[in-house]
């Protein structure tokens, strides 16, 4: 496999404000790569540098082996991009806009665009000014994908989409991977990353802190557990379980964070009459805080 995206010490700063710092990243051909980080972490800046909307302060980036500054136009001919914050010409309908983009790309057939519109439930006949945020997002996704680019770079692609459309979008991403194409997308929603990504890169405060297979990230994440029994139980055995932290007992209810040993916890709970059980995955923000969330004060102290 070859690197579709390669960055070396890629840095972009805005005066004194933070951008990205020394990002070293490789995305291989045919993989779906999730770029994760809380808001303001630098995801959008990194994507905008790859698209040559922003010029690197130092370091370099390559897409398909070409320098992103020197060969930007050639690169964009093979990339479908959904920007994070975007608008479309108010007066134009989706159909007219896609015809314009097809002309810019030398695409003759809009059949796949119409297929995507059907699957995502996008209305191509109404002017943009009459579309909701979610419907504009659908048009944005279609314009990124309709020409079947070898690389998709998508910034928060599911923002504003309802759950059914999100589901369909993730199916489409699965198909794109099945065709051997590459997807690089930023997100802060762990569940969608878990569904489709092969690997994830974690960016925090402008620095790429980790790159690992998605399974590793998901497996090392903890769960919030809430057990409600018919009558109060002794919390001691639960507290003694390996991986149980922050246990709180209130009457018949136990709440705790579970890092490990799900099987033993379930077996222990099954010894009592269980009325309700909630097993909730943490938000990505919580995972960041737990695994990557060393505060700036700690950084300074360190």
């Amino acid at each position: 496999m070859c690197a579709v995206i390669y960055t070396e010490d890629l840095t972009k700063t805005y005066g004194k404000a933070r951008g990205i710092r020394d990002v070293n990243l490789t995305v291989e051909e045919g993989e779906v790569f999730g770029f994760l980080g809380p808001n303001g972490a630098g995801k959008t800046t990194a994507i905008r540098v790859l698209m040559n909307f922003l010029r690197p302060t130092s370091g370099r980036a390559e897409v398909f082996g070409r320098d992103t500054v020197k060969h930007s136009v050639e690169i964009r001919s093979a990339v479908g991009n959904l920007p994070g914050e975007f608008a479309l010409e108010d007066k134009m309908t989706g159909e007219r806009l896609l015809k314009f983009f097809a002309r810019l790309r030398g695409v003759k057939d809009l059949g796949y665009a119409r297929e995507l519109a059907g699957r995502l439930g996008a209305d191509l006949t109404r002017p943009m000014r009459r579309l909701s945020r979610g419907n504009k997002q659908k048009i944005g996704l279609i314009q990124a994908m309709f020409h079947r680019p070898p690389l998709l770079i998508l910034d928060e692609p599911t923002g504003g989409l309802d759950p059914l459309v999100q589901e369909e979008f993730l199916r489409i991403i699965g198909e794109v991977r099945g065709e051997g194409r590459t997807v690089f997308f930023s997100s802060h929603v762990l569940s969608e990353v878990e569904r489709v990504c092969d690997r994830v890169g974690i960016i925090r405060e402008g620095e790429l802190v980790d790159v690992e297979p998605t399974d590793n990230l998901v497996n090392k994440s903890f769960r919030h557990v809430r057990l409600v029994f018919e009558k109060p139980v002794d919390p001691g055995p639960f507290r003694a379980l390996n991986g149980v932290e922050n246990l709180c007992a209130e009457g018949p209810e136990l709440r705790f964070t579970l890092y490990d040993d799900l099987d033993r916890m379930v077996k222990l709970a099954a010894q009592h009459r269980l009325v309700n059980m909630e097993y909730e995955r943490p938000s990505l923000e919580e995972i960041f805080l737990t695994y990557y969330g060393a505060s700036e004060e700690e950084d300074r102290d360190g």
């Binding site: 698209m51 136009v73 990339v79 959904l82 920007p83 914050e85 975007f86 608008a87």
Partner: peptide
């Protein structure tokens, strides 16, 4: 307006 990103996402110098 935010329209320039989508336009320059295409292979336009």
């Amino acid at each position: 307006r935010g329209t320039i990103d989508v336009l320059l996402g295409n292979p336009v110098p």
